[in-house]
Amino acid sequence: MTCTGDLDGAIGPLRRVQRHVQADGGVWLRGYTDLVLARLLARLAARDGDRIRGEEAVELLVDASGAFAASGDRRRYRQCLLELGRNTADLGRPAEALHWLEAYRADTGRAHARGRELWAEMFVRRSRLREAERQAAVLRRHALEDPLTGLGNRRSAERRLAGLRFGEEPLSLAVVDVDRFKEVNDGASHTQGDVVLRRVADLLREHSRTGDEVFRWAGDEFLVLLPTATEAQAVVIMERLRAAVAAADWGDLRLTEPVTVSVGVATASPVEEGQPDPAVGWRALFDTADLLLFSAKRSGRNRVRAPGGGPADGRSGA
Rank of each mutant, 00 (worst) to 15 (best):
C3P: 10
I11Y: 09
P13G: 10
P13R: 12
R16Q: 13
Q18H: 06
A23V: 00
A23L: 01
G26D: 07
R30S: 11
R39M: 15
R39V: 06
R39Q: 14
L40Y: 12
L41M: 14
A42W: 08
R47Q: 12
D48V: 03
R51M: 03
G54P: 03
L61R: 15
D63H: 12
A70E: 02
G72I: 01
Q79M: 05
A89P: 05
A89G: 14
G92N: 06
G92L: 09
R93K: 02
P94E: 11
L98E: 13
E102M: 07
E102C: 08
E102L: 11
Y104W: 11
R105A: 13
A106L: 15
G109S: 06
H112E: 12
H112Y: 02
A113E: 09
E117D: 07
M122D: 15
R126F: 15
R128E: 08
H142R: 13
A143H: 11
E145W: 02
P147G: 04
T149Y: 04
T149S: 05
G163M: 06
F166M: 05
E168S: 05
L173V: 12
L173G: 04
F181P: 02
V184W: 00
N185G: 00
G187I: 04
H190L: 07
Q192P: 05
D194G: 09
V195H: 13
L197Q: 03
A201E: 13
S208C: 07
T210D: 04
E213H: 09
E213Y: 14
E221Q: 10
L225F: 15
A234V: 02
A234T: 05
E239R: 10
A244S: 14
A244P: 12
L255H: 15
L255N: 06
E257R: 10
V261F: 00
S262E: 01
A266W: 03
A268S: 12
A268T: 11
P270H: 11
V271N: 04
V280F: 12
G281F: 08
G281T: 12
A284Q: 15
A284T: 13
F286H: 11
D287R: 07
D287C: 10
L291F: 11
F294W: 09
G300C: 07
R301L: 12
G308N: 14
G310M: 07
A312I: 07
G314V: 00
